[in-house]
Design a protein around this nucleic acid. Sequence first.
DNA 1: TGACATTAGTTAGCGATGTGAACTATCGTG
DNA 2: CACGATAGTTCACATCGCTAACTAATGTCA
Lengths: 147, 147
Amino acid sequence: MPSAPPVTDLAGLASQLRLSVFRASRTLRRESQAGISPSMLAALSTIDRHGPITAGDVAQHEQVRKPTVTRILAGLVDEGLIERTADPLDRRVAWVQLTPAGRALMRNVRRRSDRFLAGRLRALDPADLATLERAAEILDRVTEQEE
Amino acid sequence: MPSAPPVTDLAGLASQLRLSVFRASRTLRRESQAGISPSMLAALSTIDRHGPITAGDVAQHEQVRKPTVTRILAGLVDEGLIERTADPLDRRVAWVQLTPAGRALMRNVRRRSDRFLAGRLRALDPADLATLERAAEILDRVTEQEE
DNA sequence: TGACATTAGTTAGCGATGTGAACTATCGTG
DNA sequence: CACGATAGTTCACATCGCTAACTAATGTCA
């Protein structure tokens, strides 16, 4: 694999990347079959990874405002996927964590519920897959960083 | 640059990619400063690239249903960025194309309106930028293909 | 101690974006 | 000319994000 030429047109890359990510997100949203909405799945994943976590910290990780988190968490509680625990020392704070059902859903999603996308990825060659894998990490760094 | 190890866990990559793309899209939507919405910008870009095009074909390219296209195009017409031309032979069909204002906006967006994302990209090393560039193309292939 | 700022989270209401179902208008075909 | 296919629209609905304003609890400091 020859090393790629350097990218100097940052603005061009930025606008291209914006469009590609936007379109991909739209398609993936439509094809999502996890049983819960993309927002809920993303929040669930954050809660899964970061153990017991406060609503405010979920907002930080998800890069979303607090009222949005309130609604998403309410939905996850309704579905029985997370549970809240009041903080005994600071009664303003509510900790959330996955229920067994939440953990089961996450396992399910990771292992086999992404048939649409996985099916399309199957057609790619290994180099492209590796590129996507690295790109996912880079995207996370770029978009999740604190300002 | 050493060649990457092969990716075999397609389901894992798929679910990771879904989350990364979703979060990136959410952040980019919030930071968008093009003056028009991401949907409108994406459609405008498609119309720009594919010359005079019908509404149905815009829907194909954008991977969106026809009612969605109707509304997006109406917005672009309101903003004076595109214009419709009735097909003289088939009066069901409406062709759309960019107005001078639409072309000017596209030039503007490509060159300098993506400060947020470009600013964050500036911190990346050339290899990461090249990865993102290739990933954008791959994403387009994966998500825009006909089923 | 008591006034006041800060912090965590919620409620209420808005706007943007996408959808499916049903509709109009037009076209093509036997 | 009847009837099915096609292009696009309208309508009602759901999701998802936001700001503003609120409640409740905590911290600070004169």
